[in-house]
Computed example of a mutant assay.
Amino acid sequence: MNYISKQNIKVNGPITLPTKKKIYTILRSPHVHKKSREQFKWFIHKRVFMVYNVKSNCLKQIDLPSGVKLEQKKC
Rank of each mutant, 00 (worst) to 15 (best):
H33A: 02
P18G: 01
S29T: 06
N12E: 13
R37S: 02
K60W: 08
I26G: 00
N53W: 07
S36E: 15
V51Y: 05
V54A: 12
Q72L: 13
N2Q: 12
H33K: 00
I44R: 12
M50E: 06
S29R: 08
S5K: 13
Q72A: 11
R28V: 01
E71H: 10
P30W: 12
N57D: 07
I15K: 13
S29L: 09
I15Y: 15
E38V: 00
H33S: 04
N2W: 11
G67V: 04
K22W: 04
I26F: 12
I62K: 11
K34L: 05
Q7I: 02
E38D: 10
C58V: 09
L17P: 02
K69G: 14
V32E: 03
K35L: 07
Y24R: 07
R47H: 06
E71T: 10
L59R: 06
K41R: 08
I9H: 05
F40V: 06
V51N: 01
H31W: 14
V48Y: 11
W42N: 02
Q39V: 02
G13D: 13
Q72P: 11
G13Q: 15
S36V: 08
V32P: 02
D63Q: 12
C58I: 03
K22T: 06
V11Y: 13
K55G: 11
Y24N: 08
Y24Q: 09
N53S: 07
I26N: 02
M50Q: 06
V48C: 08
K10G: 04
K46V: 04
I15F: 14
I23H: 10
Y3G: 09
Q61M: 11
R37H: 07
L17N: 06
I4P: 00
S29D: 13
K22P: 01
V11C: 04
N8M: 08
L59Q: 11
G67D: 06
R28G: 03
Q7H: 09
W42C: 03
K73M: 14
I44G: 05
K20R: 10
F49H: 08
V54F: 14
G67Q: 07
N57W: 09
I26W: 14
H45Y: 14
R37Y: 09
K22S: 02
P14R: 02
K34T: 06
K20T: 04
L59V: 05
S56F: 14
C58S: 12
D63S: 13
F40Y: 15
G67Y: 00
I4E: 05
E38G: 05
Y52H: 07
Y52P: 00
V48L: 15
M1Y: 15
G13E: 13
N8P: 00
K10I: 12
F49A: 00
M1W: 14
Y52S: 02
F43V: 00
F40L: 08
K34Q: 07
T19H: 07
N57P: 10
C58F: 15
K73I: 15
H31Y: 13
I15A: 03
I26R: 05
L70Q: 15
Y24K: 03
I44P: 05
K41N: 01
N57R: 10
L59S: 02
V51I: 14
V51A: 01
R47F: 04
P65T: 02
S36F: 12
R47L: 04
L70C: 11
K69S: 15
E71A: 00
K74V: 10
